[in-house]
Computed example of a mutant assay.
Amino acid sequence: MNTFQLKITSSSGCFYDGPCESLILPTDDGAYGIQANHESMVIGICIGEMRFLNENGWQSVILGQGYARSEDNHVTLVVDSAERPEDIDENRARAAKQRAEERLAVQNSRKEYYRGKLAMTRAMTRLKVKEKKYL
């Protein structure tokens, strides 16, 4: 099968740089797929689970917000965060969910509300992927 070069960069550095056969990204409109020789484009990425296929099979990555750029058989992702399901600390994710729920309940300001909503989305995504992968 044809491959393309995939590079995932997060705020903590390069997460992955290597070949990829297929890529499924989380977007506000749902899942978006990319394969080799895809048309050039830029797309917004929302918090969620990304999956990509390489020589080791399907890999899952939990992404923060960012964007993907496809050009000349290279796809570059620039995201706030990227982590593997096996690196998620379930207790920490549950504590983050609880803090987000408390933040949403207080609703001191619109800014705090949106911060709480983002934190809740991040925590729920981590827990969902963790439960799916390791039940």
Rank of each mutant, 00 (worst) to 15 (best):
M1W: 09
N2M: 14
N2K: 15
N2D: 15
Q5N: 08
K7M: 07
K7G: 07
K7L: 06
I8N: 06
I8W: 07
T9Y: 06
T9N: 10
S10D: 02
S12A: 10
C14N: 14
F15S: 03
D17C: 08
S22H: 13
I24G: 11
P26M: 01
P26C: 00
G30F: 02
A31Q: 12
Y32N: 00
I34P: 04
Q35K: 09
Q35A: 08
N37P: 03
H38F: 05
M41K: 01
V42E: 05
V42H: 04
I43Y: 00
C46D: 10
G48L: 00
L53H: 13
N54H: 10
G57L: 02
S60D: 05
V61I: 07
L63S: 09
L63H: 11
G64D: 05
Q65Y: 05
A68Q: 04
A68I: 02
R69M: 13
S70Y: 01
S70D: 02
H74S: 07
H74I: 05
V75M: 02
T76V: 08
V79R: 04
D80W: 07
S81E: 08
S81K: 08
A82P: 04
E83V: 03
R84Q: 12
R84C: 02
P85M: 12
E86P: 01
I88E: 04
A95K: 15
A95C: 11
R99T: 08
R99M: 08
E102D: 15
E102M: 08
R103V: 13
V106K: 13
R110K: 14
Y113A: 05
Y114A: 04
R115V: 02
R115D: 09
G116E: 01
K117E: 15
M120Q: 14
T121M: 15
T121G: 08
T125K: 06
T125C: 10
T125E: 11
L127E: 05
V129Q: 04
Y134P: 10
Y134A: 14
Y134G: 15
